[in-house]
Amino acid sequence: MTIRVQQDAFDLGAEVAGFATDRKDAGALVTFTGIVRDLTDTDLTVMEIEHYPGMTEKALGAIADQAAKRWSLADVLVIHRYGRMSPGDRIMMVATAAKHRKDAFEAAEFLMDYLKSRAPFWKKEITSDGSEWVNSKAEDEAALTRW
């Protein structure tokens, strides 16, 4: 299991190619990548992500541990960036490897649902008009009830 919280961009292709290669029993590999999107009325110029160093790594590790208990997983990778990013930049990724695809898909969805509202990251959108903190969505909180 690998958890990385970093400012720098990551190479999606290299991360996926190098993931779980030592687990020959893993027949399924699922990845999810989050990308900065521009849904503001004015031009989004920068997305700034703040986090809580120390707690962030612990929270992500705890979420990955829960996933590993619940599904039969060969490996888990979570990379989440912080700092300033532009539309189109990759913010984060999760990868799960499992013997069968059902475990890999479900665990990846679980990881995403939890890290959206249980890992201490906060997004701020900076546009030509000013800046605004992104509000959490009720549906993100509601998504946790299905697990």
Partner: peptide, 29 residues
């Protein structure tokens, strides 16, 4: 609120606690 880097509640006791953090609901992912 997080108490010693774990999400907690406002009625949590402070005895022995070293670090408290206050923040809005998280928006990761």
């Amino acid at each position: 609120v997080a108490v010693d880097q774990e999400l907690s509640d406002f009625d949590a006791p402070l005895s022995g606690v070293r670090e408290i953090a206050f923040f809005p609901p998280m928006t990761g992912g």
